[in-house]
Every structure is written in structure tokens, then in C-alpha cells.
């Protein structure tokens, strides 16, 4: 985006840490601040208009597109990104399920999908296939055709039945 530099600093709480943002363009999205100012490049940017879901993060417990959040407006919020899902070098159970089911091809949509699926299994532990498809409608994947992604999600939801 264009726009004048704002000298004003602000702070964000990301993955439980209070971080200082300085030098971000005024009006910058949370997506661009995460990536360009805080170096958290796990969150991906593509459409920057809320269509693709590759920048999905949790904001105060709600799944949102980071590109549609103005960073300077969420200084009091708790932000969770893909980097905070599991300790470095380990995988969350959603990430493990994606690996186990080969639910990744180019990988660009994967962080956003992992965030959306993590949110989905928390909110709807009994989701059926139709619900899963509907809940993931905001995350586009151009490689997999979604079959293996759905299989990975179903494996997580069925764990309780085993």
C-alpha cells in the first residue's frame, strides 16, 4: 500500500508476547505488520481482500483475515498466528494430521488452513463433511482439490470415537 510513514509506535500482543511495531505505514494491515515489521512470515498474503484465507489468524479467539484488520486498531487484542500453534520444532495435532494425510502440496494456503481447521475443531468437534466444507469455504487451495485436507480434518474429529 501507499501512504505516509507514521512515526508513532504501537504494541501488539502476538502469541502471548508484547511486541513493539515501529515504522509501519499508517493504516497498514495486520498481515503486512506481522510479515514486514515483526518478521512473522508464517502468515501468508495473497489476495489482500479477504477472499483467499491464506492470512487467517486468531484475533481474541475469532478467526479473521489479517489483511482486513488494521494493525493499529488491535493493540489491546490477543493475536495468535501459525508460529504460536506449537513450540518450535514440534507440530500441533492439526499440523501432524496434515502431514499424515498428505494435505499439503505447494503449501502456500497451509498456514491459513491450519489456523482455520484448529478453530473449526475447537468450535465444532462433531462437524460432518458438509459442515467441514462450509467452514473451510474461506480458505482457497489451488493444488489439492481439498480431498486430503478434508480427510485430515475428519481424522481429527473422529479421534474421540476411537
Amino acid at each position: 500500500m501507499t501512504g505516509s510513514k507514521d512515526d508513532r509506535e504501537f504494541e501488539l500482543t502476538v502469541n502471548g508476547k508484547r511486541l513493539t511495531v515501529s515504522g509501519a505505514p499508517v493504516g497498514a494491515s495486520l498481515l503486512s505488520v506481522l510479515r514486514d515489521n515483526l518478521g512473522l512470515t508464517g502468515t501468508k498474503g495473497a489476495c489482500e481482500e479477504g477472499e483467499c484465507g491464506s492470512c487467517s489468524v486468531m484475533l481474541d479467539g475469532n478467526l479473521v483475515c489479517a489483511c482486513l484488520v488494521m494493525a493499529s486498531t488491535v493493540t489491546e487484542a490477543s493475536i495468535a498466528t501459525i508460529e504460536g500453534l506449537a513450540p518450535s520444532g514440534t507440530l500441533s495435532r492439526v499440523q501432524e494430521a496434515f502431514v499424515d494425510h498428505g494435505a499439503v502440496q505447494c503449501g502456500f494456503c497451509t498456514p491459513g488452513l491450519i489456523m482455520a481447521v484448529s478453530d473449526l475443531i475447537d468450535r465444532q468437534p462433531n462437524a460432518d463433511r458438509e459442515t467441514i466444507r462450509e467452514e473451510l469455504a474461506g480458505n482457497l487451495c489451488r493444488c489439492t482439490g481439498y480431498g486430503r485436507i478434508i480427510a485430515a480434518v475428519e481424522s481429527l474429529l473422529n479421534e474421540g470415537d476411537l
Binding site: M1, G3, V26, G27, G50, L68, V69, M70, T73
Partner: peptide, 18 residues
């Protein structure tokens, strides 16, 4: 006015509102 941002941030991201 900025509220949910689902329209307004699209404009801002593309430089229109600045």
C-alpha cells in the same frame, strides 16, 4: 469510518483510501 474492515480495508490495502 472503519468497523469490520471487510470492505474498507480492501480499499486501504489497494491504496484507494489513503
Amino acid at each position: 469510518i472503519l468497523a469490520g474492515g471487510t470492505d474498507e480495508m480492501v480499499r486501504i490495502n489497494h491504496g484507494a483510501a489513503v
